[in-house]
Design a protein around this nucleic acid. Sequence first.
RNA 1: GGCCCCGUCGUCUAGCGGCCUAGGACUCUGGCUUCUCAAGUCAGCUACGAGGGUUCGAAUCCCUUCGGGGCUACCA
Length: 485
Amino acid sequence: MPSNRPVRVRFAPSPTGDLHVGNIRTALFDWAYARHTGGKFIFRIEDTDRERVTDEYIQAAIDTLKWLGLTWDEGPEVGGPNGPYLQSQRLDIYAKWAAKFLADGFAYHCYCSSEELEAVREAQRKANVAPGYNGHCRELSADQIAAYVAEGRKPVVRMRMPDGSTTFTDLIRGEVTFDHNFVPDFVLVRADGSPLYTLAVAVDDVMMQVTHVLRGEDLLSSTPRQIRVYQAMGVKEDEYPLFAHLPFVMGQDNAKLSKRNGEVSIAWYRERGFLPEAICNYLALLGWSPGEDREDVTMEELTQLFTVERVHSSPARFDMKKLEAINGDKIRALTPESFLEKSLPFLTDAKVISGSADEIDLLKKALPIIQERVATLAEIPAMLKFLFVAHFEVEADSLPKVNDPESKKLLSVAFDRLQNVSEWSHDGIEAVLRTALIEEMGLKPRIAFSAVRIAVTGSHISPPLFESMELLGREKSLARIQALI
RNA sequence: GGCCCCGUCGUCUAGCGGCCUAGGACUCUGGCUUCUCAAGUCAGCUACGAGGGUUCGAAUCCCUUCGGGGCUACCA
């Protein structure tokens, strides 16, 4: 079966919504496999269902893949020798093959109406037999056809499944066999002439010389149908693509991940401040592992380590906590320049800064003290807000903690002594406050500094206090303390 | 219902007949560190779905069973 053709892997989503976690995990494995083998990664849009696929979703899918860094060798925007890569632009190709299948007897026109088919299914269900097309139109006479046409019926093109069975070797699950008794004749072309997935996917994989199909396991049972199309196209068995059906990514409730059971759109994660490399690293661990207790991998390492052999056959639950942990690790691993660049949009969107040069200067100094304190980029604005706000206010739930007489006394001592600090640096500030509050007043550090922290940053949770005061500056720091005395 | 896939800590996983009184990570609990929060660090909790085989020996092989999931469209 596997000839030594150059590896060509495709990711072929049907963008009926934003790409979600499951799609992306598939795309990631497709990409990693292509890169690992030195093969080509093909990106194809399956938009044969124009009722549900929109141009916006197609563009969103393209943008998402780009954002994640899953670059493709052939597909939308980059083109390639096997295009076009949008199925809606390949209609003539499918029509040609459908006509050939009809002429060769692999397929036939079926005039059954939806209502009739539904009635058949209903009867089958009642009789407790395998549901599926009953072959009603398989051998229609010329007269019968003429009668149907006279009625104004428009036929679909249906593939004839021969008796027997289909066996193929799934790279992840091993040998899988489907008895054709349970693979009914399936529709290739709608009554309106438009192709269905069953036709387009097989034709395109052959035309685009795809060698490996790694896709979700929901498509496992449709594989015999694809193989039947290959046969009708005259593809030799050793040139069929190899299949690998990836396990599902599931939500908390053990159902296939979908909009109903969690936030699954990648766009949502992007807005929440997740890094693409964190998403990819985490997703790579869902259904695959590099072994040797290894978990932290870069995109580059992923392409080196990824093999289909190490992909699981069992489904995985999506765990937001673990994603956050990995995201925190990846944020800490960012260079200062890169951390700044990635933080900027979150700060400006939150209107914490407008983006002026002065603000950026201050930001460059502030970012290092919070880099190890955030799990997502979205947490940054709240953490640095105190440095930039025009009208400073202490948070409501922290205010009571500085309103008692002891706190006011403490703050007043701090205020007095801080005025005499010669050099407004975190070392200088710390030395003065320790002497005044800890040594002379005998306070516990956590008590003493808490009041100052609330006064200066507005919250009992903040970046390191002395660094924060240094960045805020003497004037503002003192004013904020004084305001609470 | 039928067909197909799947089954190790709460979760993701390592494990491919002896190295397993089952390892790592996340979560959770407790300790250390500490100006808060993090980070770091130490410790703890907790798993081979069940029942039969095969074998000197099974998480690893076989069977049954139970459980979960997918498909069963003129969706993909």
